[in-house]
């Protein structure tokens, strides 16, 4: 039974109004950047572009997309992101589940071990020497392995697992399932929301990352697109006469174009993951 009181109606009106305002505020910069990326030199220097492109031009897109290095680096980014996300997800899930089991021996030690890394780390140079010593430099492994488990994500996931009623696991184990069976058939199917969140966190992180690539990769053909674009912007923005770029008009809106080119693909991931963000899968699973 739905009661539509006067108060409720006012609430709806105000609610919709506020939400619309939020949408406008968040959408404006996105549209502004999109419009600027398609505008020409004259309108950009006069600063007249708001959310509709003026003096439509795609020179910058053409210049960047006409470069084979760009596509090669884009391919690298996709590979690093997919592989990195899979590895991170598997490792984090396994570790987080283990930590969520109360009867695990040395649980306190392992937790302390993990949390320790949130406060202290070896620093860039020791890390570099480890990666170098393991002969991972200039391979994809240098990008996807060292940061495979993010401590923050691990703790989030462990907390989620701890929230799953223990009775479900007990029931499964009475029915003869071992630990791996419980993880694969009970825990993971119940954890779709958290897994979707982790995929998003890891994929976006990997997509945007450039630091480990900059550190461990010495050949241009291995670099991800983030570094390619970073270097492009550095070139276009440099004020020194000697090394200045020949990009010309391109340099004016290169910032906007690079933002569009790098964010669009990863933005497309969101709608596909959204359906997993469902609450209440476990309501009523434990009775009495």
């Amino acid at each position: 039974m739905i009661i539509k009181s006067k108060g409720y109606k006012t609430f709806r009106v105000i609610n919709v109004f506020i939400m619309l305002l939020v949408i406008v505020i968040t959408l404006f910069p996105v549209l502004n950047i999109l419009a600027k990326s398609f505008s020409d030199l004259k309108n950009l220097t006069q600063n007249t572009v708001s959310i509709i492109p003026k003096g439509f031009n795609v020179d910058t897109y053409k210049t960047i997309m006409g470069d084979m290095d760009f596509w090669n680096d884009y391919k690298n980014t996709v590979i690093y992101t997919v592989l990195g996300t899979i590895i991170s997800l598997v490792m984090t899930t396994m570790f987080a589940y283990a930590l969520s089991v109360p009867r695990l021996m040395g649980k306190k030690f392992l937790t302390a071990f993990v949390v320790f890394t949130m406060f202290f780390n070896g620093g860039i140079i020791p890390n570099y020497m480890i990666v170098n010593g393991l002969h991972m430099r200039n391979t994809v492994w240098a990008i996807v392995v060292p940061g495979a488990i993010s401590t923050f994500n691990l703790i989030v996931m462990r907390t989620f697992f701890e929230g799953i009623p223990k009775e479900l696991e007990e029931a499964a184990s009475i029915d003869g399932m071992n630990t791996y069976g419980i993880l694969m058939r009970i825990i993971i199917p119940l954890s779709k929301p958290i897994i979707a969140t982790m995929v998003l966190f890891y994929a976006v992180g990997m997509w945007n990352s450039w630091f480990s690539a900059f550190l461990y990769l010495d050949h241009t053909e291995l670099l991800p697109v983030t570094i390619y674009l970073r270097n492009l912007i550095a070139g276009a923005m440099s004020a020194t006469g000697a090394d200045a770029d020949s990009l010309g008009t391109v340099s004016v809106n290169i910032k906007y174009v690079t933002i569009v080119l790098t964010s669009v693909p990863i933005l497309c991931v969101y709608p596909f993951l959204q359906k997993y963000f469902v609450q209440g899968v476990m309501i009523g699973s434990v009775k009495g």
Partner: peptide, 16 residues
């Protein structure tokens, strides 16, 4: 090394 990060990479390489 991309020129955007040339100085940092130089430092890492020398230090290591």
């Amino acid at each position: 090394v991309p020129m955007s990060d040339y100085n940092s990479k130089r430092s890492v390489l020398i230090a290591s």
